[in-house]
Amino acid sequence: MAHADNSYYIPHGSHWPLTGSIGLFGIMIGASIWLNGSGIGPLVLSIGFAVLLFMIFGWFRLVINESEGGQYNSEVDTSFRMGMGWFIFSEVMFFAAFFGALFYARGIAVPWLGGDSNNFFTNELLWNNFTATWPTNGPDDLGGKFETLGPWGIPALNTAILLTSGITLTIAHHALQKGSRGILSMFLAATFILGFIFMGFQAYEYIHAYQELNLTMESGIYGSTFFLLTGFHGLHVTIGATMLVVIWLRCLRGHFKPDHHFAFEAVAWYWHFVDVVWLFLFIFVYWL
C-alpha cells in the first residue's frame, strides 16, 4: 500500500511500547532488589531483559516490514533521520556528564585536596601528607596501590582498529549507494569484525587491570572515572556492533536501496559517534 508523497502517514497502534515499558520495569525492579540483597533479583532481572529483547525484536521487525512494504514516504524518512540525530546528541550529553566528572576531579577536586586555591587548611587539617597527583586513588589510598594502562600498547592499537572500522563502514556505504552489493556486505562484515576485535582487546585489558595492576572500580577517583567512561563506551560499542550485524543480515536479504536506507545510515552515524567518543577517551583517559 504505497503512499503518495503529499499525504501524511500515521502508523497504526502497537503494543510494543507498553511491552518495552514492562520489560524495563522488570529490569529495574530486579536490579533494585538484587542490589538490596534479594535472592530472586537476578531472576526478575532476567525476565525483564527477556521481555525487553522480545520488544526490541518485535518492534524492529514490524518497522522493517513496514519499511520494506513501501509504507514510509520521504517525510517519515526525514523524521527518522532527525530523531536519530537528536538521540545521538542525548548520548553525547550522557558522556559529557562523565567527562565533566573526570575534568572536575583532575582540575579541581584533587588539587584542592592537596591544598590548592584557598584550601591550605583542608589539606593541613584533614588530609595531611596528601600531595595532588594524577592518577590518584585519593588521600585514603582506596583500593590500595595500583598501576595504570599506558596509552601506547593496546589502547593505541584499539584506536587504529576503530578508525579503520570507520573507513570500512564508509566504503560499505558508498558501495550501497552505487549498488555494489558484494563490496557492501564484505566491508560491512569487516566493520563489525573490527568492532568485536576491539571489544576482545578491551576485555583482555580489563582482566589485566583487575588481576595484575590492581586497577579496579574501587581504585579511588581514577578507577571510578576510568571504568565508568571506558565501560559505558564498551557498552555502546557492543550495541553498535550488534546493530551492524543486524544491518549486515538485512543487506544479505537484499534490503535497502541506493537512495533509501535510513537504518543503514542511522547505524553508521551511531558507529561514528562511538568512534569519536573513543578518541576523547584515548586522549583524556589513557594519554594525557
Binding site: A101, A105, A109, V110, L113, L126, W127, T136, N137, G138, P139, D140, L142, G143, M217, E218, G220, I221, Y222, G223, S224, T225, F227, L228
Partner: peptide, 9 residues
C-alpha cells in the same frame, strides 16, 4: 567508586 568521596579523591 569514589566520585563523591573525598577519601578517594
Amino acid at each position: 567508586t569514589s566520585f563523591f568521596n573525598a577519601a578517594g579523591g
